[in-house]
Amino acid sequence: MLKALLQREALVVFRSKEGVLNPLAFLFLSVLVFGIAAPLNDRNGGEYGVGVLWVLVLLTNLLSLDALFRRDYDSGVLEQALLNAQTPWLFVMLRILSQWVCTGLIMTLTSPLLGILLGIPTNGLPVLGMALMVGTPAISLLGAIGAGLTVGFGRGGVLLALLVLPLFIPVLIFGVGAVKNVLDDANYWGQIYILAALSLAGLISAPFATLASLKISVAMR
């Protein structure tokens, strides 16, 4: 059962290149646009670069979250999964996991490159990667609640942003804070711990809340 679900998710992730490629391309393109509008480098970068990168991470995630359940919802797979699966929350969790792999994990892996483009000093890059690694799960998990709720609307994008962006603020603050602290030679572990705590809190609550929101959306069909 679990194996079948995992296989399906793995297929979705690796077969469709767009799932992995699109968010990444969007992120790099945004960085490019930023670089053209307001070039950032070591002199003025640092602080600004970190902030810009985190904001772009949030926005990219938002775009990807909008599509999180859409295909399954439209094709009716979602309804089936909620009705028949022994553990519907496992289905939800795996869906979120694969979304995170396509966005958060890939952003973490490419963060050194993004950081350099945005003029973040190299001594901040390891902590940037670590903060992204422990912080992005919280974004995917919290965002999934809103994604489940808005999947029933033809165009839920703006509503999704309105609902979940305020909830992302803590992740943004502590994520930026960690990197800024390392650039200031200050202690950054506190922020990392908080980010991890936020992600864990999302992990134990979001699957159930997402399930509830998906049930509402399915009932709306």
Partner: peptide, 25 residues
């Protein structure tokens, strides 16, 4: 009713977290 109850609840749980992080920031 169900949707807004859910989002109200989620938002309220997040209020202390948001306040704490913003104050800290």
């Amino acid at each position: 009713a169900r949707a807004s109850a859910l989002i109200c609840l989620v938002g309220t749980i997040n209020i202390p977290i948001i306040k704490y992080s913003v104050n800290w920031w």
